[in-house]
Design a protein around this nucleic acid. Structure first.
Length: 507
RNA sequence: CGGGAUGUAGCGCAGUUCGGUAGCGCGUUCGGUUCGGGACCGAGAGGUCGCAGGUUCAAAUCCUGUCAUCCCGACCA
C-alpha cells in the first residue's frame, strides 16, 4: 500500500516556506537552476504557463492599441548615462560587455580580445535605447501617441536569486509609450495598471491591490510608479508588476521632441510598464498547497489530465477508444476562446502514482477512465480545487455539457480562496505597539509565518517609513488607489495623517 | 556583497567525530504478477563523494583554497 506521508510536498508551507516553494517547482517540473549562477532553465511545464501569460496579455495590449517591436539587447553605456536617477538605480546590477571576440591564450584556453571602443550594457530595462529610437520616430504631434511593447529578456545582476521571483536573467514585457500631454501619459499609466490588475485577478486568480509607490520605492527615473501587490501564503507582499509615469525625464534625456499644432517644439511625456516571469512565482505562492502546484484553468498548460485504467491489452484498446471519443467531443468546445487542452497519461499503468503526478503539476481536472466508467458511460473526476480524495463519477454527456462551467468554477474557487486568505490577513492597525507586535515573530530563531498586510496611517514623512523599515523590515507596499481620505495619526510618529497605506514584509 | 548552513547515484539521505577505497529508501532498466488512492517479487544499471591543491602507504572522512545552493542581512521586477 501507499507509503507516502500526509502530504505530497515536503516540507509543508508551515514547516519551511522557502523550501516548500523550491519543492513545488521541482515536483511540478517547472524550472531548475542552470549552470550559470542566478539563471534558471524554464522547463516545458513552466514555460507553457509563461506562453499563456504572454498570449493573454499580448491580446489585451493589442486591444488597447499597442504594437510589438524589438530593440537590441545591448545598450551603449553612453545612452545609459543620460538619465541620472536611472543610472544610480541600475548601475550596481549591470552586466557589461567589454570585448567582441576570444583568442587563444597560449595555455589551451581562450582570452577576450577585440576591446570595444564603447562598452555595452546588457539591458536591465530599455528606456534609454527605446528612447533613442523614439527621438528619431517622433517629429510631429501626428506621430503621437506612440504605443510600443516588447517581449524580451533582461539582465539584472542580483546578489540573491530565487527561481522565478528574482533571477539574473528574466523574461518580461516592457511597454514604452510617448504622448503629447501629461494627462494622456498619466491616463496610459493607469490604463495599463488596470489591465495588469484585471489579468492578475481574472487569469491568474490572484487578488491584487493597485496603488502608488512611495518616493523611496519608485522606479529610478520615474515621476511616479504604480504597482499591483499580491499577498503570498506566507503573508508577505509581492510586487507583481509596475506601471510608471515618467514625465518628461526620459524625453529630455533622449531628446524626444515633437512639433505641436502651434508649431512649437515640445518634449513628449512618456510611460513605461512591465510584468515578468515573476508572475509565475506569484502564481505558485498564491495558490499552491502542500500537495503541489494549483493552476487556474485559464493559465494552465492543460486543463485536463486523463489517466486510463486497464488490466490487459483488450481493455486498453477499449479504454483508449473511449477516451478518443471523449476527446473528440471536447475538441469543439472553447474555454475563453481557447481550445481545452488535454494531457493523456498513457504511461505504463501503475496505480495511483499518475494521479499524484498530476496533482503535483496542478492540473485543474483529472479524469480516471477505466472499464467500469465505460460501462456507465461516465468518467471519474478529481478537481484540484478540492481534496485529492474527493472524486466523483460523472456522466460523460453531463461532463461535456458542464465542462466550461466546471472550469469556471475551479477558476473562481481558486480566486475566492486567495481572496479570503488576503482578507483574513489584512488588518487595520492604529496602535504602534500592536503594529510592532503584528510584524514580530514569536519564534525569533526560526520565525513562523506571521504578520500580513497592515492598513495603517502614514504621515508621508519618509523618515517614518525608513524607521519602520529599519526596525521591522516592513515597507510601505503601496498607497492604495482606492484609499479614501481619513483623519488619523501616523502609526510611527503619531503626527496628523490623512490616509492609510499598506505596510508589509515583501519579496 | 557581509554572516550562517549545506554539497555523497535522478530525488531524499546515512557514512565524516576515530582515514582503509561507498551504502540505504524512492526513482530508473529488464522479466513476471498486478492495476479504480503513491502496487509486489526477482534480477540489473547508475557515484573520479561539488571542484582544485595539500597531508598520508591510504582521504567522502584531516588541512587550505575555490565554486555552487539554501537561509539571514544590504539591494531589487
Amino acid at each position: 500500500m501507499a507509503k507516502k506521508g500526509k502530504t505530497a510536498i515536503n516540507p509543508t508551507r508551515e514547516e519551511n516556506y522557502p523550501a516548500w516553494y523550491q519543492q513545488i517547482i521541482k515536483a511540478a517540473d517547472m524550472a531548475e537552476n542552470s549552470d550559470v549562477r542566478g539563471c534558471m532553465v524554464i522547463k516545458p511545464w513552466g514555460y507553457s504557463i509563461w506562453e499563456n501569460i504572454q498570449k493573454s496579455l499580448d491580446e489585451m495590449f493589442k486591444e488597447t492599441g499597442h504594437v510589438n517591436a524589438y530593440f537590441p539587447l545591448f545598450i551603449p553605456k553612453s545612452f545609459f548615462e543620460k538619465e541620472a536617477e536611472h543610472v544610480e538605480g541600475f548601475a550596481k546590477e549591470c552586466a557589461v560587455v567589454t570585448h567582441s571576440r576570444l583568442e587563444d591564450d597560449g595555455k589551451g584556453g581562450l582570452k577576450p580580445a577585440g576591446k570595444l571602443t564603447e562598452e555595452l550594457i546588457i539591458r536591465p530595462t530599455s528606456e534609454t535605447i527605446i528612447g533613442a529610437s523614439f527621438s528619431k520616430w517622433i517629429n510631429s504631434y501626428r506621430d503621437l501617441p506612440l504605443l510600443i511593447n516588447q517581449w524580451a529578456n533582461v539582465v539584472r545582476w542580483e546578489l540573491r536569486t530565487r527561481l522565478f521571483l528574482r533571477t539574473t536573467e528574466f523574461l518580461w514585457q516592457e511597454g514604452h509609450t510617448a504622448h503629447e500631454t501629461k494627462e494622456e501619459a498619466i491616463t496610459e499609466t493607469f490604463k495599463i495598471l488596470d489591465i495588469y490588475a484585471r489579468f492578475a485577478e481574472e487569469f491568474l486568480a490572484i487578488p491584487v491591490i493597485k496603488g502608488k509607490k512611495t518616493e523611496s520605492e519608485k522606479f529610478p527615473g520615474a515621476v511616479s510608479t504604480y504597482t499591483f501587490e499580491a499577498m503570498m501564503q506566507d503573508k508577505k507582499a509581492l510586487q507583481a508588476g509596475t506601471s510608471h509615469f515618467l514625465g518628461q525625464n526620459f524625453a529630455k534625456a533622449s531628446d524626444i521632441k515633437y512639433q505641436g499644432k502651434d508649431g512649437k517644439e515640445e518634449f513628449v511625456w512618456t510611460s513605461s510598464w512591465g510584468v515578468s516571469t515573476r508572475l509565475i512565482g506569484a502564481l505558485i505562492m498564491a495558490h499552491a498547497d502542500d500537495n503541489g502546484l494549483v493552476l487556474p484553468p485559464k493559465i494552465a498548460p492543460a486543463q485536463i489530465a486523463i489517466i486510463p485504467i486497464y488490466r490487459n491489452d483488450e481493455q486498453q484498446k477499449e479504454v483508449l477508444n473511449f477516451i478518443d471519443k471523449l476527446r473528440n467531443k471536447i475538441k469543439p468546445l472553447r474555454y475563453f476562446e481557447n481550445k481545452i487542452r488535454i494531457e493523456l497519461d498513457d504511461r505504463d499503468p501503475t496505480g495511483g502514482e499518475k494521479v499524484w503526478h498530476w496533482i503535483k503539476k496542478g492540473i485543474p481536472i483529472r479524469l480516471e477512465i477505466g472499464p467500469r466508467d465505460i460501462q456507465h458511460n461516465s468518467v471519474f473526476m478529481g478537481r484540484r480545487d478540492k481534496n485529492p480524495n474527493e472524486k466523483e463519477s460523472v456522466n460523460v454527456d453531463e461532463f461535456i455539457n458542464n465542462l466550461t462551467e466546471i472550469l469556471d468554477e475551479i477558476q473562481n474557487n481558486i480566486f475566492q480562496k486567495a481572496l479570503k486568505f488576503r482578507e483574513k490577513n489584512i488588518v487595520k492597525i492604529d496602535d504602534k505597539a500592536e503594529f510592532y507586535k503584528f510584524f514580530t515573530p514569536q519564534n525569533k530563531k526560526n520565525p513562523e509565518i506571521h504578520g500580513g498586510f497592515a492598513f495603517s496611517q502614514w504621515c508621508e514623512n519618509p523618515d517614518c517609513e525608513e524607521q519602520i523599515k529599519t526596525d521591522l523590515k516592513v515597507s510601505i507596499r503601496c498607497i492604495p488607489l482606492d484609499s479614501t481620505k481619513e483623519e488619523g495619526k501616523c502609526i510611527y510618529c503619531g503626527n496628523k495623517s490623512n490616509k492609510r497605506v499598506i505596510f508589509a514584509k515583501s519579496y
